[in-house]
Design a protein around this nucleic acid. Structure first.
Lengths: 109, 109
DNA sequence: GAGATATATGTCAATTTGGGCATGTGTTCC
DNA sequence: GGAACACATGCCCAAATTGACATATATCTC
């Protein structure tokens, strides 16, 4: 539903994904590793799951979540179009120099 | 101020960045290439600029915007931690199979 | 089956944010 | 200097989103 970048925009969700970098984690586990309340974690996990970024595997009363690469891959590929902007120094390093004063500071009438 | 992913979350901003892939563009140019109003374009360009994703160069009455790689690089590097999830097939392809029914459909009492 | 544990969901109030529109500011040209 | 052009900004409102808190659901253990 929501696109990948929208999903990644939320810091709490990125924190969750970071906690999942090294493998499956249960919800309680994720609550401990982040500083979120359990309902918040579940809520964000739900969003991550609906968007296909993570998957769920149930094991007893534990829900184990893990990363699914495909969705993240899309984001990575979108960004790959810009690689040349930091590889070739095509970057503008001179923004400050070229910034043109558009108006003198206006003093309060 | 706002982090890169938050910046990229907005489709209209990504459209602008896509239009800038091949080089500098003026505002009017960007208005034509996207389907946004001029104030909207300017608003989003402002946000992109404040976050360091693009830079501005003034040429006469034209404002020429262009990509600055560094900010986007951060995003790309964050994503690079997940590459193995789509390279090694570490991905869970079996989400649907492993999805466990948590409750039978509950009929209205 | 009762209680404890693990997780999900619903509601709500507060905040953020984007677009539209009007208008302000800067620049060019005659 | 005045009109036309290029762009930025301020204000308003509607839609989306988050966390908190309470509570529902599922599973395990005894």
């Amino acid at each position: 539903m929501a696109d990948v970048f929208q999903i990644l925009a939320e810091p709490s969700r990125r924190h969750l994904l970071e906690a999942l970098r090294h493998g499956e984690r249960s919800v309680t586990d994720l609550v401990d590793r982040t500083r979120m309340s359990q309902p918040s974690v579940s809520k964000q996990l739900r969003i991550l799951r609906d968007s296909g970024v993570i998957s769920l595997r149930a094991s007893g009363r534990h829900h184990l979540y893990s990363i699914r690469g495909q969705a993240l891959r899309e984001a990575s590929e979108w960004l790959s179009y810009y690689e040349r902007f930091w590889h070739d120094g095509l970057d503008r390093m001179d923004d400050a120099l070229q910034r043109v004063p558009r108006s003198r500071p206006r003093r309060k009438s």
